[in-house]
Design a protein around this nucleic acid. Structure first.
Length: 446
DNA sequence: TGAAATGTTGGGGCG
DNA sequence: ACGCCCCAACATTTC
């Protein structure tokens, strides 16, 4: 008996429910990945490199079993049923929870012998319910229930043989600038395990190397969240705090699963009438890292350069876009979705709605970050700013957080001419704050 | 997983 | 010695 294991965002062989189940139940497997041109053609260069790197690593791992990763190109809705019919094979995969994936998968489920597993989250959407069977809309009670629910034991794979036809093969693009694949992800986890007890104290510091950097591995499923829990544990506060972040990931997957419309509109109806600014110049300045607020610009430049941004800085730039510039959160969500190599659509949408105050358990609309005090608090020496905004490198803290307050002598000594070498702030924060408060209040009243 | 405005308290300078 | 004011420090309220 034959089965296709359709890999999507679960590019690993360990802690992979679909792979484990199929390899135990069937003798012959085809390990399949489908490159959907609708996604691939729109992907950034960086994302293609990361994906191809993960596919290559998976292909190598399958080689250890005497097989290959079969790469097909086309619309999965056509490719999967066709292959299943030709091979006479059942199909196993791990569920994805975005609206796009779900409608695609539904179309396929109807025409093949499909078995759907859950390998992307710790507890699948719909499994964490309130006492009365409802959905949590506040994170803390969700988390309480989430950590009480027992983990599903990880089942090891069985002895099936794996097909050796590579199909179209892994796309031939340049390798990513960091190690990818399951073994690299496990190694990253091991290294983080040595630092995790500093996590709670240092996780908000973008100038330190204090986070796990596992987000890209998680995005592609080179590692499963349950493996992370089993390795890190919750026996110290730092470990518990880190694992709590995985619960946020589940929270947002659950939320998007339950409210697919929240992809494109405010989850909370009373926030659907905010009048956003039509400000293409402001949006461009934000995207390019030329707002004149160093911490914002540092983050936005890191995003373009690395396809990654420190989480605290994500919150700061999101608050700046939605509150200071009053630009629709969907503009920011789209920009992040395109450039973040670790983008998890549910978390991205959920966190943008959180920042804009429109989402579940969101920051109240009047919680407006002051980009200067955030900068001083979380990048105290300005090292993060200096790394990403090199034109300010000669400016010492605290001036590096607010160069417009530097005197002419200090600017000259640092070799900076404001407005030429580095922009003046494109908006005054205290003005912007008042504007946001009144605009949100007006929108809520409608 | 804020920040600013406003209120309160208490120490110290000073007439 | 005393009252008054200033203001830093902290607490509370408001957005």
């Amino acid at each position: 008996m034959k089965a296709i294991v359709w890999f999507r965002r679960d590019l690993r062989l360990g802690d992979n429910p679909a792979w484990s189940a199929a390899s135990r139940e069937f003798d012959d497997l085809v390990a399949l990945f489908v490159i959907d041109p609708a996604l691939w053609d729109r992907a950034s260069e960086g994302r293609r490199r990361v994906l191809a790197g993960h596919l290559q690593a998976l292909d190598d791992d399958l080689g250890q079993l005497g097989g290959r990763l079969h790469v097909a190109t086309g619309d999965p809705v056509e490719v999967i049923p066709k292959m299943a019919a030709v091979l006479g094979a059942a199909v196993h995969w791990n569920a994805d929870y975005t609206p796009y994936s779900r409608s695609r998968d539904r179309a396929i489920e109807n025409v093949v012998d499909a078995t759907v597993h859950h390998g992307q989250v710790v507890h699948p959407p719909g499994s964490i319910l309130t006492g009365t069977g409802g959905r949590y809309r506040v994170f803390t009670p969700f988390h309480r229930r989430w950590e009480q629910r027992p983990l599903t034991p990880i089942t090891p794979p069985g002895p099936a043989t794996v097909g050796a036809d590579p199909g179209d093969g892994v796309p031939d693009v340049a390798p990513p600038p960091f190690d990818v694949g399951e073994a690299a992800a496990i190694e990253r986890l091991e290294r983080f395990d040595e630092r995790v007890d500093r996590y709670l104290d240092e996780r908000d510091r973008p100038d330190l190397d204090s986070t796990s950097k596992l987000s890209i591995d998680l995005k592609w499923g080179a590692i499963g969240p349950q493996t992370i829990i089993e390795r890190i544990g919750t026996h110290t506060r730092g470990r518990e705090g880190f694992i709590r972040q995985l619960a946020w990931r589940d929270f947002y997957a659950d939320l998007l699963h339950d409210e697919p419309e929240s992809m494109t509109r405010a989850l909370r109806p009373e926030y659907r009438h905010i009048r956003w600014e039509d400000d293409p110049a402001g949006l461009d300045a934000w995207k390019a890292g030329r707002t004149g607020y160093p911490i914002v610009d540092a983050g936005m430049r890191q995003l373009l350069a690395e396809g990654w941004m420190h989480n605290r800085v994500r919150m700061i730039v999101a608050s700046f876009l939605t509150k200071d510039l009053l630009i629709d959160w969907r503009q920011g969500e789209r920009h992040f979705r395109h450039h973040l190599l670790d983008v998890d659509v549910a978390s991205n949408v959920g966190n943008w709605q959180w920042a804009a105050g429109t989402g579940a358990d969101a920051a109240p609309y009047f919680r407006i970050f002051n980009p200067i005090s955030q900068s001083k608090k979380f990048d105290p020496d300005g090292d993060y700013i200096r790394r990403w905004v090199p034109e300010l490198a000669e400016l010492s803290a605290p001036l590096v957080h607010e160069p417009w307050t530097a005197g002419p002598l200090e600017l000259a000594a640092a070799g900076i001419e404001l407005g030429t070498d580095y922009p003046n702030p494109i908006i005054d924060h205290s003005f912007a704050r008042e504007r946001a408060l009144s605009r949100y209040k007006a929108g809520l009243g409608r």
